[in-house]
Design a protein around this nucleic acid. Structure first.
Lengths: 243, 243
DNA sequence: CCAAAAGTGTTTCAACTACACCCATGC
DNA sequence: GCATGGGTGTAGTTGAAACACTTTTGG
């Protein structure tokens, strides 16, 4: 009963297992720091991929909904419990996993990199998304698709706040949009657009410790923060909240 | 080796199989006729779902990419070979299949209902999408998500022509958009918008057999018709073609 | 006083909406 | 000649883009 197989054990699959299809999830965990979009990767321990990094994934257990699996992976790897997750795509080409037939469903996740993570593995590191050229398996492809999806979602849906600390200035928000979209935005137009969307609460507080004129601080209206209502209803909720 | 298991045999899974996760694909096959959006369904042969209809699906084989599976299902069920397909979402809740643990990836497909289909099963019928209240398994949910996705795609991407015969009038095209989106569109604005997109070739031919002034006939520029280049590149191609 | 970013309004342009009349064909 | 849809243009509105100066703070 392969109930508690770990990713690191996939390669130990017996020949018998090889003749079944295994189902995994892979998490594209995005974070934001120092004006750069980052992704959390783990050093691959497969011989075929020595020196390469890979996404965090695991086999789906027999006793969990597929959507629970990425929450479990996040919890196990980072200690985080209440995160934004969205399914991206399912990848199932024949040769995508060297140890056998593994079909994987990719989820992307947005977390506040400053929430001191309890990283459970010392081979776990944040990488600048822009610097990544090659990953183990088809994970570069999965990353590209997830980033593409994130870019599609981020201007339309109030999800970006999950990448920021609770309080932030409009400049920080704009920098983050720019990091994700890879473009520069006009400050005045950006502020008008954000104001129009009515996603923010004005905290009547100011930044401090900045070496220039401090900006006002805002936070996201609570319904947009983290993962409102947990599993399954993500998409529908996010959608209804912006109508 | 469960290499050639058929959907209809899922329920025969042994207890041994029950303790594995099976992977299937389900096809939401859309067609258009008589100003109504239709979907191709098969009568469920599971006891639990007596009298209910279900989507066409099958287990993914060990020797095929996951994206090949829906093409194979389409080919087996309708005889069609070169169809538009797009992955929608992967559904994997614990209780979704009464015979065991089956995770399914949904694809939607757009086909010309008039291409006389070689329907391989006499319990296979077209149903008006608007009339469907209940389906076997979680297929109503899958249908709803697929329709939602089709609606998102159809104004932005040149895919709708796959639902029409090769030659069509602007009225037919508009009727089809209206059937999909569930709204009425202004004729003049619609024609301007379509003209602007530059998706059509003017055939310099007229309708005949219509009991009113005949309209001009158009066809989609060839790159938008059917499934250009087959599997895998669907999304990327569709996207690049509209830039 | 210098550097850095905060904050703010107007004009232009493109896209979308609403809306009405004459035309061509079949019957 | 009547019914049905074909075919077309304009005015108003809305959202996006371009663009520059003054203010506040820290150093």
């Amino acid at each position: 009963m392969p109930r508690s197989l770990k990713t690191a054990e996939i390669e130990k699959n017996s020949h018998l297992d090889y003749f079944n299809i295994a189902v995994s999830v892979d998490c594209v965990i995005f974070g934001y720091d120092n004006k750069e979009l980052k992704v959390l990767l783990i050093k691959s321990d497969l011989e075929e991929f020595t020196g390469l990094w890979s996404l965090l994934g695991d086999l789906v257990r027999l006793d969990e909904d597929i959507e629970s699996a990425p929450y479990r992976v996040l919890k196990e790897r980072t200690g985080l419990d209440d995160v934004y997750l969205d399914q991206v795509y399912t990848f199932g080409d024949l040769g995508r996993h060297p140890s056998g037939r593994v079909i994987t469903t990719a989820y992307y996740s947005l977390i506040d990199i400053k929430h001191q993570l309890k990283l459970t593995h010392n081979e776990l590191h944040w990488h600048k998304v822009n610097d990544i050229r090659k990953l183990a398996f088809d994970h570069k492809n999965i990353l590209d698709r997830s980033l593409e999806r994130l870019r599609e979602q981020v201007m339309e849906h109030p999800i970006i706040f999950n990448l920021l600390p609770e309080k932030f200035s409009l400049r920080e928000l704009q920098d983050l949009y720019q990091a994700i979209l890879g473009v520069n935005l006009d400050r005045r137009n950006f502020r008008k657009k954000i104001a129009h969307k009515d996603w923010l609460l004005d905290l009547d507080e100011m930044e401090n410790d900045v070496p220039h004129r401090p900006g006002k601080l805002y936070k996201a209206k609570t319904q947009f923060r983290k993962n409102p209502g947990k599993r399954k209803t993500n998409r529908a909720e996010a959608r209804s909240l912006i109508d």
